[in-house]
Simulated scan of single mutants.
Amino acid sequence: MKKYAFNDITLMQYIFLIAGIQLGVGLLQLPRELAELAGTDGWIALLIGFALATCSSLTIVAVMKRHPDGTLFDLLKRYVGKWAGRAAAVVTAMYFAFFSYSIILRAVLFVRSWILPKTPNFVMLVLLAIPSYLLARGGIRILGRYAELVFYITLWMPFFYLLSLRESNWLYMLPLFKEGLQPILFAVKPTLFAFLGFEAAFLLYPFLKSKQYASQGIIVANALTLLVYLHVTVTCNVFYSPDTITHFNEPSVNVLKTMEFRFIERLEIVFLSFFIMIISTTWLPGIYLSVFSINWIFGKADHRKLLQWFMLLLVASLLFVKPTFNKTDQWIEIVSLTGIFFGYLFPYLLWLYVWLHDRLRWRRRGA
Rank of each mutant, 00 (worst) to 15 (best):
E265C: 05
W283S: 01
T281F: 07
G299W: 09
T281P: 06
F292W: 10
L272N: 05
Y288M: 13
M277K: 02
K300M: 10
G299M: 11
I269K: 14
I264N: 00
M277Y: 08
H303T: 11
E265G: 09
T282F: 00
S280I: 01
M259T: 03
F261I: 00
F271W: 12
R266E: 11
L284R: 02
I276C: 00
I287N: 04
I287P: 03
S280P: 05
F275P: 00
V291G: 04
L267K: 02
F292A: 13
G299N: 08
I297F: 08
G286L: 06
L289Y: 05
I287C: 03
T258A: 15
V291H: 08
D302L: 03
T258Y: 13
I287R: 00
F275V: 10
L267T: 02
Y288F: 15
L284C: 01
R304I: 01
R266C: 09
P285Y: 12
K300H: 09
D302Y: 02
M259I: 15
K305L: 13
M259H: 02
S290D: 05
S293W: 03
T282V: 00
E260A: 07
F292P: 01
N295V: 07
L289C: 04
F274K: 07
N295P: 04
M277Q: 05
S273R: 11
Y288Q: 12
Y288T: 13
V291R: 00
S273I: 14
K305P: 05
